Computed example of a mutant assay.
Amino acid sequence: MFDAHFRYGRRLDLVNPQTLADKISWLELNGDRETMARLTDKFEVRGYVAEKGLSDALIPLCGGPWTSADDINVDALPHQFVLKATHGCEMNYICRDKSTLNVDDMVTHAQRWLASDYSRACVEPHYKLIPHRIYAERYIGGMDGVIDYKFHCLNGVPSFVLTCSNREKSLKLNLYDLDWNAIEGLQGSMKNAAGIARPSALSEMVDMARTLSSDFDFVRVDLYERGGKVYFGELTFSPAVGVLPYFTDEFIKRWGEVLQIGRKQN
């Protein structure tokens, strides 16, 4: 029995995995780390998305990738852009107006990202294999008002959707089935009492999630909807370090019975 209770508030059984958290964590330790690393890499995954015929959902690039912050050619970047790191989470620098951009501050952030070892901070070994790079994407709008649709896909099939909203203030979570019926399963202070409107492109999102998850036992497919268009966010193989502390014990037990680990080569 692996005890993650001290750090994460939930114990994991990696010898005889039963719950969804157990099985996701088991896959992290026993799956194909090279594939997980390649598709967790926020730059490399773009190739996979394109191979699946979904290149139209990719946010356009406008620079990079760079292995050194000194290589960033700010003059060549558009008036608005987002600088991102390939190898971790919460490594985004938004430029809404290049005329007021603090270049030194941006470069400092980029240098800090490049020097960070996210695999040690998050205890997710596959991050160790991701090259440390930065790149720039076109700015499509801030996160205020944007909903993050996280399709949790089990056995190559989208199964339920976790939504993240109110990111710039106090993150709120909602949980839905694929017909957009609210379902129980969340716990903690981030649980949102208010509902999230059904996205107009829900059917398209479900199809995209199914296409992108078909090769894996488990993966979370993150999508956004902006101006009526669906954008790809990322693929995540071990959300919340695999422990899923925002889900109830009953919820992860129920979905653990559904997930069949070893069915596909992760």
Results as ranks from 00 to 15, higher is better:
residue 82 V to P: 09
residue 240 A to R: 02
residue 212 L to H: 02
residue 241 V to D: 03
residue 72 I to C: 08
residue 183 I to M: 06
residue 227 G to K: 05
residue 230 V to G: 03
residue 95 C to Q: 06
residue 211 T to R: 10
residue 84 K to N: 13
residue 266 N to E: 13
residue 67 T to V: 14
residue 99 S to A: 15
residue 72 I to Y: 13
residue 147 I to A: 12
residue 228 G to C: 01
residue 180 W to N: 06
residue 241 V to R: 12
residue 60 P to V: 05
residue 216 F to L: 03
residue 190 M to S: 14
residue 186 L to S: 14
residue 52 K to L: 04
residue 112 R to S: 11
residue 2 F to R: 14
residue 76 A to N: 10
residue 74 V to Q: 01
residue 18 Q to T: 00
residue 94 I to R: 15
residue 174 N to D: 14
residue 253 K to V: 12
residue 189 S to F: 15
residue 121 A to Q: 13
residue 132 H to P: 08
residue 195 G to F: 04
residue 143 M to A: 11
residue 223 L to R: 08
residue 43 F to G: 00
residue 5 H to P: 00
residue 257 E to S: 08
residue 261 I to D: 09
residue 8 Y to C: 02
residue 168 E to Y: 05
residue 103 V to Q: 13
residue 256 G to T: 03
residue 155 N to A: 06
residue 46 R to T: 04
residue 224 Y to P: 03
residue 120 R to L: 14
residue 84 K to W: 04
residue 209 A to E: 02
residue 67 T to Y: 07
residue 51 E to L: 03
residue 93 Y to M: 09
residue 121 A to F: 10
residue 68 S to T: 01
residue 94 I to F: 15
residue 254 R to S: 10
residue 163 T to D: 14
residue 64 G to M: 12
residue 165 S to N: 12
residue 55 S to F: 02
residue 251 F to Q: 15
residue 128 K to C: 04
residue 175 L to S: 10
residue 258 V to I: 13
residue 25 S to T: 06
residue 35 T to V: 10
residue 18 Q to D: 03
residue 202 L to Y: 09
residue 82 V to W: 03
residue 66 W to R: 01
residue 251 F to P: 11
residue 123 V to A: 14
residue 216 F to P: 04
residue 46 R to G: 11
residue 83 L to P: 04
residue 263 R to T: 00
residue 256 G to R: 07
residue 96 R to W: 01
residue 166 N to Q: 06
residue 143 M to G: 02
residue 130 I to R: 07
residue 259 L to V: 06
residue 113 W to H: 01
residue 102 N to K: 14
residue 44 E to R: 10
residue 98 K to V: 05
residue 59 I to C: 15
residue 18 Q to E: 14
